[in-house]
Design a protein around this nucleic acid. Structure first.
Lengths: 204, 204
DNA sequence: GTCTATAGAAGGATAGAC
DNA sequence: GTCTATCCTTCTATAGAC
């Protein structure tokens, strides 16, 4: 017994193809800007065939968002309150940057959602996300109180990690326009820069 | 003789009303997600009346973007190569944060545009913006070479200033969801946090 | 200048053949 | 399961009265 009706291999494969195409299109145009025609073309399927696998455009979008939040919060969950403070925070920054590098479309899907009011995920932000951030902020505040890192507002510290890592995915076009064509991968430079930044910020 | 045909006061006022409404709607839904109905309602005018003042939806969007880039780059242009390095950079951070606080809709309009591929402003990014950043990066690199600030990649420094300041406007919904209702203005905390961050990063 | 009415195109979703 | 054809709604833009 599973949560969902059993699916053949071909059904499973098509659902994944469609979700991949939907991610591509939604992340580039936002929910309202995306069209089923674009998704169908990206998936190599007909428009009605999309709607055989998902009841609506909305359902595709929800399916993408549902899986996203856990992936996005995993690096923060992996922060160990018992570890060495600076290593833990630098490790979080590094993991979050890798996530932006390897899943830029997911990052942009999320950014589109927040930017446009987050109506579909506001409950998650105010619930699950806030709870996790509150816990982590308490840990970081404890480290600062013990003098193991320099004193710093833990909430703004977390915001700054999000802003700095996601910037390279969400504003990729601008970053590459400014750096020019012949440069290294922006993410390599970012990794070194961010390690330096947070080391200098947090070293007591 | 002016660049444009003369306009009555009422025409001028209506154009501004429409652009204000368009900014509200475009910044929240992106270009394709916005509708003329929404803009008309926000402006308190009929839909055909909008199209009496602007030839198309596209024209409204372009009018907004045209004015935006200069406003957005002004704080960077105000950075004085002859000034005290740390003060100049901290001053830039502060001005940029104020801009995000006072013009969050403009920030989100810009973010929507970049996020969705920046097709309408890519030439400006690769031309005017890149030139200005290259010049500023050279100034900052010089300061670092002279030991007046700590060594740091000037391009990633500028990216980090953009990311950190615009985050509070673009991801406002998420910031407020995490901080909860009863807290201070996020921008107050951000101002103090960012000053600390860049001071610790850049003090030699 | 501003409106009502509507043309014409595009988009989401369904019917029904295969 | 997958397609063609099509319905119905929404959207941009225009026509034309006032």
């Amino acid at each position: 017994m599973t949560d969902h009706p059993p699916r053949t291999r071909i059904q499973q494969r098509n659902r994944e193809t469609i979700l991949g195409a939907a991610l591509e299109v939604f992340s580039q145009h936002g929910f309202r800007g995306a069209t089923l025609d674009q998704i169908a073309q990206a998936a190599g399927l007909s428009k009605p065939n999309l709607l055989y696998y998902f009841p609506s455009k909305e359902a595709m979008h929800e399916a993408l968002l549902a899986g996203l939040m856990d992936t996005w919060l995993a690096p923060l969950r992996a922060l160990d309150p018992g570890g060495e403070p600076l290593d833990e925070i630098l490790g979080y920054v590094h993991r979050k940057l890798l996530l932006s590098r390897d899943f830029p479309r997911e990052s942009r899907l999320f950014a589109n959602e927040i930017l446009q009011g987050a109506e579909r995920i506001r409950p998650t932000l105010e619930g699950e996300l806030k709870t996790l951030v509150d816990q982590t902020a308490a840990v970081i505040a404890g480290w600062a109180r013990e003098g193991r890192i320099a004193p710093v507002d833990p909430y703004h510290l977390i915001f700054s990690i999000w802003a700095l890592t996601q910037h390279y995915a969400d504003f990729d076009v601008q970053v590459r326009a400014v750096l020019g064509a012949g440069k290294d991968d922006p993410f390599d430079g970012a990794d070194r820069y961010l390690a330096t930044l947070f080391r200098r910020l947090l070293t007591p």
